[in-house]
Design a protein around this nucleic acid. Structure first.
Lengths: 102, 102
DNA sequence: TTTATATATCGCTAATTATAGATATGTTTA
DNA sequence: TAAACATATCTATAATTAGCGATATATAAA
């Protein structure tokens, strides 16, 4: 983890909706349609579900998720026409190590 | 740690200079005038030293530090006309716990 | 192959943040 | 008390980011 990457991660985490997305993705089964089983649960949640919950436009949420994936906060997996996003705990742990002392 | 505070912390950590300041303050004795002993070392580093190292204006750095203190990333201690800033490891640890899973 | 659906990207304006100079405040020293 | 100094705050402009609609791309279904 270097300064530049850490700052990019900070930028992703500087917006309330994006922080919420990170929180929601801790428990997809609870936070997205808890009454029906999620498809590809091991790969996270598709863009549409996140967009509906966040109540922002499709383009905005897609951009958020793409940027969060670029800095390693999320992992994207494509299944057909759907993109699934899940948390990348490795990067999050590295980031925490970076900002912590020591 | 709630969503609002976490987002404020994210904002502080969304700028390269501010992330650098957090890094420098991990080792003040190494990063600020390593050849002379720092005054009030237990309380961190004064604004002027940080400003000189960051090479930004006094007002900019003062605003940075004030905001970082407001969201609990830094602890400020006044000694006479100097304000000393040090890392608040408790808040940093809480923030890491918040963004981590679980 | 056309149509429908999901996501990504582009181009734009509004909102926010960055940054500095000027000035105010608080503290020390002459 | 006045002058000097360190820091904080105010005000303004420049730069960046937010967020959306339009459109492009990719995949699936008819």
């Amino acid at each position: 983890m270097d300064l530049k990457l850490a700052t990019e991660i900070g930028k992703c985490l500087s917006n309330q909706t994006r922080v919420k997305i990170m929180e929601w993705l801790k428990e997809p089964a609870l936070n997205f349609y808890p009454d029906e089983p999620l498809k590809h649960a091991q790969d996270g949640v598709c863009v549409t579900y996140i967009q509906e919950k966040a109540k922002l436009s499709q383009s905005t949420i897609s951009t958020y998720l793409t940027n969060m994936e670029k800095c390693g906060l999320l992992i994207m997996t494509r299944h057909g026409k759907w993109s699934y996003f899940k948390r990348n705990e490795d990067t999050i742990a590295n980031y925490c190590k970076f900002i912590s002392n020591p």
